[in-house]
Amino acid sequence: MHKQFSRREFLRAALGSGTAAVLGSVGLSAGRFALAAPDRTESASSPYALIIDTTKCVGCGACRTACNLRNELPEDTSYIHILSYGEGTDRSFLPVQCQHCAKPPCASVCPTRATYRREDGVVMINEKLCVGCKYCEVACPYQARTFDEDRGVADKCWLCLDWVQDGRDPACVAACVLGARLFGRQDDPTSEVAQLIASGRAKPLHPEFGTHPSVLHYIL
């Protein structure tokens, strides 16, 4: 049998364990950074660049339609969502899709490592590992992740990698009739995309999110 505490000792014990619990919670929050998986990819950038010129975009949605058709997505889902700002003659449009970040929060929060970043900067999903917890959908600051209800897995723009590796443009770029979308290799200094990025005209979107988009750039 152990001795019983007096009221004062009980309060002291409660306060002590309470403080320990609070400190523990702080430690757990901070430990997240210590335990974060190291960035396995060597380069923070990507050989590919997809530039969206919002000064030319009229919000017609052709890119979205082409993407949906190519990926056989249902009508209420899309890898691309088109935001609009302003009114009347000041109206502007912002097509947003996966930015293929160099520090993708979707990959770091994914508990099964289904989402990962390739060496060429393209962020992909290994659907065989995905359990459908939707943490990635919540964690993407660009809200670029969707969920495939039928298969129960996360989904998003995959940069039409098969076409890109064949030297062709992704579907959304090919579909834009106004030339608001450009695709090319930023590792080729003579390419138009490389020059737009180097000149500073084409920039990452919301760099304050800290995710370092490596493929998508915007002319705002």
Binding site: P111, E127, C133
Partner: peptide
Amino acid sequence: LGAGKTEPWRIVYLFTNFGSV
């Protein structure tokens, strides 16, 4: 869960990414 319900063995993978809360 989504696919983790229909293919429950995937739940084992949940234990693997220590960078994820």
